[in-house]
């Protein structure tokens, strides 16, 4: 059983969803990055997504774009990823990476999976890689015991969802809206339907992301998904400070346990 399967087995047993928090690596600073991930885990995140700051993030909205640019300006290099992941797993935390595919290709798919596995990372979310093009990547992740995590979107027809879940390990990432990352006021009505369509095709845990920012929204999603993924809202909170980030994690952690009033 992979680390991610264990994680979701545990949260399912507790009858709740997992809270998954995203930050770009090297944010707010390169030196303080691992500590910030650990603070999120401390305050209630079951899993963190370590984002690879990329020059051309087509699936990201302005908040994450700006944070990624800050991280790159702060000297972030690809090899820094593995040190950050190591510091998270050394404290018993669970981490996956989120990376556009070109940095992985440049590093070498096999070397990337190998070095992530050595650092204790569990999987990689690849937002701009579809299974049709993933031959090399699947071979690399398989060889090193890393979970390849693919996305499905509200526009994905059944046939594409089947093909995607066939190659996905750990959990399936369901994009709740058609659009880029960014906190939104309302949970998209497309998400429950997408998750229901996926459930008919797979037993994989399903994480729902894009747009979540409050405990109430987390509770709403936790009612039908196995994981609630929060990105831009954490980035904005971290921009304000660690205290704000911890407070948000606590609010969301209550949300995924369904213990938050439905207004925020």
């Amino acid at each position: 059983m992979s680390g991610l399967s264990e994680l979701f087995a545990a949260t399912r047993a507790q009858n709740r969803a997992a809270l998954i928090g995203y930050l770009p690596a090297g944010y707010p600073t390169l030196a303080g990055s691992a500590d910030m991930f650990n603070a999120l885990i401390d305050s209630g995140c079951d899993l963190v997504e370590v984002g690879v700051p990329y020059s051309d993030p087509v699936m990201d909205g302005p908040v994450i774009q700006a944070a990624a640019e800050t991280a790159r300006a702060g000297g972030f290099r690809l090899t820094d990823l593995f040190g950050i992941v190591e510091k998270i797993s050394a404290k018993g935390g669970k981490a996956v990476l989120m990376s556009y595919y070109n940095p992985i290709m440049a590093y070498g798919a096999d070397a990337f999976a190998r070095d992530l596995a050595a650092a204790g990372g569990l999987g990689v979310i690849t937002p701009d890689l579809i299974v049709d093009e993933a031959g090399d990547w699947l071979a690399a992740t398989e060889a090193h015991g890393i979970d390849p995590i693919f996305l499905v979107a509200p526009s994905s027809p059944t046939e594409r969802i089947s093909r995607t879940v066939e190659h996905t390990r750990g959990f399936l990432y369901a994009a709740s809206t058609m659009g880029v990352t960014g906190a939104r006021d309302q949970v998209s009505s497309l998400a429950p339907d997408l998750v229901a369509r996926c459930r008919e095709l797979t037993d994989l845990p399903i994480g729902v992301g894009l747009g979540v920012r409050t405990g109430a929204q987390a509770a709403e999603i936790a009612a039908f998904a196995d994981g609630v993924i929060v990105g831009s809202a954490f980035v904005s909170a971290v921009t304000e400070g660690e205290k704000q980030a911890r407070a948000l994690a606590e609010e969301l952690a209550a949300g995924v346990r369904g213990t938050v009033p439905a207004i925020s």
Partner: peptide, 9 residues
């Protein structure tokens, strides 16, 4: 086609 799944459709 190296693009997000959301654009495949």
């Amino acid at each position: 086609r190296w693009l997000p799944e959301a654009l495949v459709g």
